[in-house]
C-alpha cells in the first residue's frame, strides 16, 4: 500500500489511474471468507455488552418470586417473551408497575413488576392498559373474574390487630373483593379463593416500616400465621 498519497479528488479531481491499478495487486489471493478488524471489534463490543450485563446482573435468579401485571402468562413463558420495552409500565393507570431490579436476576431484569407498595392494580377499571400496550402479547386479557395476580397474606407478627390487639381493619375496609374477613376478635384473615392480588390491602396497611399484609405470587404464598415468612416479593 502506498502511504502518504492524499485524495486526488481534493486537489483538482484528476482521475488516478495508479490508484485503480493498485487495487487488488500485491495482496494475497482472496480467501473465501475473512474477518476484518472492524468485525472483530464489533464482536468484542457485543461480548462486552453481554458480559457486562451478566456480570452486573448475575445469574438467573428464579428463587426470588415476582408479581406480574394482571393476565401475564406463566413466569417462564412471560420472561421468554417480554421485550423489556416498558410500554406496560408507562401505560399503567395507577403506576403500580415498575421495571424489575437487579435482585431478580438477569433473565428478569427490567421486566415489568407489579409492586403494590406503589399503587393498587385497578385491572377492572383501567381496561387492561398494560395488556393493550404490550407489543408482543406477553400480557393477555383474561376476564376480570379470572385475574389472579397473587394472594395476600397477613404476617401475624407484624399486624397490629394480631400482635397488639388494636382495632385496625384498614385492609378489610379497602378490599373490593370481600377477600378479607375479620375473625371474632376483629383480626383480619385472608380468604385465598377470593383474593385477586390487587394489592389494595398492602398499599393501605398502616404498619411501619413494612406492611403486615403482603401480596405474594401464587406459587410463593406463605401460610398465614405467626411463623417466619418466605422472602418478600
Amino acid at each position: 500500500m502506498e502511504k502518504g498519497r492524499g485524495f486526488p479528488g481534493s486537489t483538482g479531481g484528476a482521475p488516478s489511474p495508479e490508484g485503480r491499478k493498485k487495487e487488488g495487486e500485491g495482496i494475497a489471493r482472496p480467501r473465501l471468507v475473512s474477518i476484518s478488524r472492524r468485525d472483530l471489534l464489533a464482536l468484542g463490543v457485543v461480548g462486552l455488552i453481554s458480559g457486562a450485563a451478566f456480570a452486573v446482573l448475575g445469574e438467573k435468579n428464579r428463587a426470588v418470586p415476582i408479581l406480574r401485571p394482571p393476565g401475564a402468562q406463566d413466569e417462564v413463558a412471560f420472561v421468554d417473551r417480554c421485550l423489556r420495552c416498558l410500554e406496560c409500565v408507562r401505560a399503567c393507570m395507577t403506576g403500580c408497575l415498575e421495571p424489575a431490579g437487579r435482585e431478580f436476576g438477569i433473565d428478569r431484569f427490567l421486566t415489568p413488576r407489579f409492586n403494590p407498595a406503589l399503587a393498587k392494580c385497578e385491572f377492572e377499571v383501567c381496561g387492561r392498559a398494560c395488556a393493550r400496550a404490550c407489543p408482543v402479547g406477553a400480557i393477555q386479557v383474561p376476564s376480570d373474574r379470572e385475574v389472579r395476580i397473587g394472594t395476600a397474606s397477613v404476617d401475624r407478627g407484624k399486624c397490629i390487630a394480631w400482635r397488639d390487639g388494636k382495632d385496625c381493619l384498614v385492609c378489610y375496609e379497602r378490599c373490593s373483593y370481600q377477600a378479607i374477613e375479620p375473625d371474632t376478635r376483629g383480626r383480619p384473615r385472608v380468604l385465598g379463593e377470593r383474593c385477586t392480588g390487587c394489592g389494595a390491602c398492602q398499599n393501605t396497611c398502616v404498619t411501619c416500616p413494612d406492611p403486615a399484609i403482603v401480596v405474594y405470587p401464587l406459587q410463593a404464598v406463605p401460610r398465614e400465621g405467626g411463623g417466619r415468612r418466605k422472602s418478600r416479593p
Binding site: M1, I35, R37, L40, L43
Partner: peptide
C-alpha cells in the same frame, strides 16, 4: 484516506476487494 477506510484483516492488511466478510451483525 480511502486506503485506511477499507476493511482490514485482523493482521492489519487490507482485505482484498472480493473477500466476503464475516460481519458481526449477522452472527449476532
Amino acid at each position: 484516506k480511502i486506503e485506511d477506510l477499507r476493511p482490514r484483516s485482523v493482521s492489519g492488511n487490507p482485505l482484498p476487494a472480493g473477500a466476503r466478510r464475516i460481519r458481526a451483525k449477522y452472527l449476532l
